[in-house]
Write a protein that binds this DNA or RNA. Structure first.
Length: 259
DNA sequence: ATGGTCGGATGCCGA
């Protein structure tokens, strides 16, 4: 079972590039972030003939997540529990069944800039809610994959220029600590488990020639419960996508599970 | 047209 995450930065702007990538990469399941569309306006027709079931959790203009699967989506749940007043579309769950049932959580974690400030407070509060949900999911003792744009640079080696991120919400010590608290429940960072070299990135800013200079950061992650980690057979980052016409500023990151 | 660069939605905001 091939499972991918891809922050597409707008479904309408990325329709062609996304479909091209789906045809080439042939993932079984995909978590999309920043669809920037309401559920009603989501262009389901662009996926016709590809065989994907689609579940969206969108909002107007900003954020928005979706799950695509060609092996079905069951028990879909929208929204991160823990705050009824939170109206930002950043979390969607579903179960996929291959050889094994796998619980998937597609997430778009708040950026949090500028820090300090209310946006950073929201990020940290959201991460604490995520930690509680992550702990709850572990108690199922089933394979769980939490994947998406975490907006977290876990360590200095995950940035080409770590010094330029020192005061940024993506790399502040409090942000990294909150991410580690989730990992330390018993989750595995799939990419780091398999790709130990420095210079592994998933995002290059549109500005200042970040891509041609390879000034990247690693912020798109797949966290695996112990039962999912036992099934991990491969990981990859489709970096080449970033050099095409009309790219997202993120690239797809994927895993292969024996499930 | 909107700072740099994009996307989405307007009369800039978020990233």
């Amino acid at each position: 079972m091939k499972i991918a995450t891809f922050n597409i930065n707008g479904i309408k702007a990325r329709a062609e590039a996304l479909v091209d990538w789906l045809r080439e990469a042939e993932p079984d399941v995909v978590a999309l972030q920043e669809i920037k569309s309401t559920d009603e306006a989501f262009p389901h027709e662009i996926f016709d003939g590809l065989g994907y079931t689609i579940e969206t959790f969108g909002q107007k203009s900003f954020n928005g997540v979706a799950l695509l699967s060609r092996i079905g989506l069951e028990d879909v749940r929208r929204g991160l529990p823990g705050d009824d007043r939170d109206d930002q579309a950043r979390w969607i769950e579903a179960t996929v069944v291959g050889k094994r049932a796998v619980r998937l959580c597609g997430l778009y974690l708040p950026n949090g800039n500028p820090a300090p400030g209310p946006k950073y407070d929201y990020k940290l509060a959201w991460m604490e809610r995520m930690r509680l949900r992550a702990a709850e999911l572990l108690r199922s003792e089933e394979p769980v994959v939490m994947l998406g744009d975490y907006n977290i640079i876990p360590q200095d080696e995950d940035a080409a220029k770590p010094e330029s991120w020192r005061e940024d919400a993506l790399a502040l010590p409090q942000s990294r600590a909150a991410f580690r608290r989730i990992l330390n429940l018993g989750y595995t960072d799939a990419v780091r488990a398999r790709m130990t070299d420095p210079g592994i990135y998933s995002f290059w800013d549109y500005q200042a020639g970040a891509w041609p200079r390879n000034n990247g950061i690693r912020i798109d992650h797949l966290l695996l419960s112990p039962q999912a980690a036992d099934l991990l057979s491969d990981v990859g980052i489709d970096k080449e996508i970033r050099g095409r016409d009309k790219p997202s500023d993120h690239v797809p990151v994927w895993i292969e599970l024996d499930a």
